[in-house]
Design a protein around this nucleic acid. Structure first.
Lengths: 255, 255
DNA sequence: CGTGGGGTTGACGCTCCTCAAGAGGCGTGG
DNA sequence: CCACGCCTCTTGAGGAGCGTCAACCCCACG
């Protein structure tokens, strides 16, 4: 059984000293992944760290974005809200994911930290300038955006066609997979991880109500697909079984 | 190893003479939008036209993509299918939209023409090379991908949180808006357009059944939100009313 | 004139939502 | 120390919305 432990690394929200890029845990997966050392120095010159507390809003929908950046640790969500209060999560931001949209002034979504979180930020203007001069940043951003688009489309299938039980299993699969990548595990059959979302956030993700989420999680537990060893912790004894419940078996493998 | 050759194409869709870029109707909206004349010549050198009939599959999910390209006229869809046959449309490709994913060998989705369609194609390899040499193509592709991502996220809200009636109204709004852009109308309060999708395709788009789509279209007609002057034709006497039914009023305006 | 594809409409039932009550954990303050 | 409020989560009962199954219409086309 693989154990993935997130490393919480801060208390007070706000600006923080930014460590060296060479020791960065997401160095090879973030926007900067393709950068040569000279390009990295340019980025290093304009970067700064910021931390956010669980529950804190990073950007409000419609606000001006003065920065873009990468999630270093922790989890954030992108959500849309209708006038009558209905909410849909449209993005789940895990370590190495990029926040913000170059070329557009305001944010179209609310960005909220669901756990304590640290970001590596760049002021938007200098970053955009840098995109024009260093092709590797723009290239990597295109790759990442295409991956996000694929993820969004996968998600559409979940939202549009899957049952409540399949939706839950799909979400757990995604989080499990990402946590395995982060821990650089390969080909294991069981995992355990901390679920960074509340029942309500899961419901917002999946287009369900929190009651339905709770019921289906209980059902998956009763059927032995998952175990709940502690608050927030989820153990998956048989990953293939979970994927089967999600409706997409024989998958396992893109990126 | 036995080779089974797919049936030859029925009519004569396929290669076509490619007209000059300067007279192209999507010149200023497609991937080539930012190109200078010299860059355009490079593209012109590797481009070729292909036509597809309504109902014809452009690419099967999992197939190698030998080309990428832009939709010139007509409509295509991107769909995903689960093993048990459940289908979800994940992209609607209208004129100027880009088809294909540079940097990945195979297609993740089925691409199907829903009307007769003409595409401006580039063989994948030369196009990818060109992306590295002419920054304007890569820049424009990033912009377009970001727009697609926004559209996908808007769509998630539709799939996850809207009622059947709101879903129909949302789809009609999108098609109406796009048809207005194409016709370069400004600030009108009524539109009429041809709906390029069957009830079944609409259902696949919206995560509904075709019966529900049919019922809700009838209901919108009965309530005077839309009129159906002819087969496939839809008239919207009051666009604001339609947007209200879609659940996102006071919108009107991104791109 | 028959056939097949697209569309409409009705009856019925299942999934998931709504409303509601209550349990368990945790920090605060008396 | 326990009481209290607040938050998250669980569980139940009832109902609505949409899916399923089925019949039927319209029209193009051979």
């Amino acid at each position: 059984m693989t154990q993935i432990n997130p490393a919480p690394l801060m208390k007070t929200p706000g600006a923080m000293p930014a460590p060296d890029c060479s020791s960065c845990p997401i160095r090879h997966r973030a926007v900067c992944a393709k950068c040569e050392t000279d390009e990295l120095h340019l980025l290093e010159g304009i970067k700064y760290y910021r931390s956010f507390e669980a529950g804190q809003t990073v950007i409000f929908s419609g606000d001006q974005m003065e920065f873009v950046g990468s999630v270093i640790s922790g989890v954030a969500t992108l959500t849309q809200t209708m006038e009558d209060g209905r909410r849909q999560m449209v993005g789940l931001l895990l370590p190495s994911d990029f926040v913000g949209r170059p070329g557009r002034a305001g944010s179209a979504y609310d960005v909220t930290a669901t756990t304590d979180m640290v970001m590596c930020c760049f002021r938007k203007k200098p970053f955009e300038d840098l995109m024009h001069t260093t092709p590797h940043v723009a290239q990597r951003l295109l790759e990442m955006t295409l991956d996000e688009l694929d993820a969004a489309r996968e998600w559409m299938l979940v939202l549009g066609r899957k049952t409540a039980r399949e939706k839950i299993a799909s979400l757990l699969s995604i989080v499990a997979r990402r946590s395995m990548v982060a821990g650089s595990q390969t080909a294991v059959e069981s995992v355990s991880f901390d679920m960074p979302l509340t029942r309500e956030a899961m419901a917002d993700y999946l287009g369900l109500t929190l009651e339905t989420v709770s019921r289906q999680v209980s059902a998956l537990k009763k059927d032995g697909v998952i175990e709940l060893p502690g608050k927030r912790r989820i153990a998956v004894p048989d990953i293939a079984r979970l994927m089967e419940e999600a409706g997409d078996d024989s998958d396992g493998g893109f990126l």
